[in-house]
Design a protein around this nucleic acid. Structure first.
Length: 428
DNA sequence: AATGTGCGCAACCGCGTAAAA
DNA sequence: ATTTTACGCGGTTGCGCACAT
């Protein structure tokens, strides 16, 4: 395999980017798009390698980046997604519009890990630390890319695998899990997928839930179902009382097939509602508490004024504006845990969203039936992704901006740099 | 005030993969 | 079919700041 030739070239600047460099890069991409990244530095007049330019653009200069601290909802979503996807930061980031994989990775390593440990949860396995300790060798997240195997968090995959294992064929067929072809060749794309995020995301969930890696055998021990973990992550539950937290975990012993279809939605409602851009009035009886449409954690895609990305208003799905004033975890992320009295009239709504629909692009139709304002995850994510293809898009974004907005954008863009500006700039 | 330490963030590095030559 | 080039991803490093000693 060839290496980045640029990496070996000498006299290329490294380290922090100066405002001048940022300006050059931004101007160039605004005018011409990035095209071939390796040619960007030359065309933009930068003493940087293309890789560095790309990274700078993606992680810092992109106009659709959401700035500022992560909200509690975002953190919860990251935890939730990490339980399913492991350290696949780019895929996690795909579910958090405006956030970069690097940003999420840093947040995870510096902040979330710590919080989870403080709450008695092992950040690698998403299990209670006590349980991990008891089992001896703590399973670790395998993110080896050389193995060629799926690097889905094995603990999560294992948990899902356990669930899968528990199910009879009949039970499985009644679920809305996809019919996953076990004979499907293990394509490299599973390890390093280059497919649209939605398909990828669902594919991995499917793989996690339906494939049977060796780690997925039934262990006979208590199963902690990862989707419910955020109950333990909740601030409200952040007492650190591990006994209480443990009680929130899903116990295989209480598990029966009748609950599976409710307990096992393949994608968490928050993830879907976030990604789909659902704007669901909380009092809508069609998504009152169970299922995908139930999460009042929604954002107003039609409210560009609230967006950090003015050019992405409306349907392009880049505006991520959590509207919930409550914790996402209060029966919203995992509302199916609250089956109770409303179960019957809600479950069927959830069950309308069958995996084949999700996987074959008819998801939007199903959700439309439930909720007129919904849009497909696929469309949304694709649009989000297309935002990254800045060929001309960025230019149009800037063209759409009012002068003061451009100034504000530029101002925001340099906030961090200004904050980091050494004292030597004070005399300017 | 000087030094040490921890933390967060930005950027780099190495690798795998796909596409192009 | 093979080699080269480019891209994207995840892990790691290092800088700068804030706080403690």
């Amino acid at each position: 395999m060839g290496r980045h030739s640029c990496c070996y070239k000498q006299k290329l600047r490294k380290g922090l980017w100066s405002p001048e460099e940022d300006e050059k890069l931004m101007n160039h991409i605004n005018k011409h798009g990035h095209g071939c990244w390796s040619s960007v530095p030359k065309l933009a007049g930068l003493q940087r390698c293309g890789k560095s330019c790309r990274l700078r653009w993606i992680n810092y200069l992109r106009p659709d980046l959401k700035r500022g601290a992560f909200s509690q909802e975002e953190e919860d979503l990251i935890i939730e997604l990490h339980a399913v996807l492991g350290n696949r930061w780019s895929q996690i980031a795909a579910q958090l519009p405006g956030r970069t994989d690097n940003e999420i990775k840093n947040l995870w390593n510096s902040c979330i890990k710590k919080k989870l440990r403080q709450k008695g949860i092992d950040p690698n396995t998403h299990k209670p630390l006590a349980e991990v300790d008891r089992s001896g060798a703590a399973p670790t997240i395998s993110t080896e890319r050389t193995s060629g195997s799926s690097d889905v968090n094995p603990s999560s995959a294992g948990a899902l695998g356990n669930l899968s294992h528990l199910l009879s064929e009949t039970a499985q067929s009644s679920m809305f899990l996809p019919v996953y072809d076990k004979n499907r060749p293990e394509t490299p794309s599973l390890a390093r997928p280059k497919v649209p995020p939605k398909e990828l995301f669902l594919d991995q969930l499917a793989a996690a839930g339906h494939e049977s890696p060796s780690s997925c055998r039934s262990s006979g021990q208590t199963l902690y179902f990862p989707f419910q973990q955020p109950l333990g992550y909740s601030n409200e539950c952040g007492s650190g009382d591990s006994a209480n937290m443990n009680s929130l975990w899903f116990n295989q012993n209480d598990f029966n097939c009748s609950t599976i279809s409710t307990v096992m939605p393949p994608v968490s409602p928050s993830a879907l509602s976030t990604s789909m851009g659902l704007n669901l009035p909380p009092d809508n009886p069609h998504h009152g508490g169970t299922g995908i449409g139930s999460a009042p954690f929604y954002w107003d895609g039609a409210n560009p004024s609230s967006s950090s990305s003015p050019g992405s208003s409306g349907s392009n799905g880049m505006v991520f504006e959590p509207q919930s004033t409550n914790s996402i975890l209060e029966n919203r992320v995992f509302p199916w845990t609250e089956i109770g009295q409303e179960k019957d009239n809600r479950v069927h709504l959830v069950e309308e969203l069958k995996w084949p629909d999700l996987l074959h692009g008819t998801f939007a139709e199903a959700t439309t039936a439930m909720q007129n304002q919904s849009q497909s995850l696929y469309d949304d994510v694709i649009k989000a992704e297309s935002q990254f293809n800045m060929e001309g898009i960025c230019a149009s974004w800037f063209q759409n901006q009012q002068p003061q907005q451009q100034l504000q954008a530029a101002s925001d863009m340099y906030d961090k740099d200004l904050q980091r500006m050494p004292l030597s700039f004070e005399h300017i």
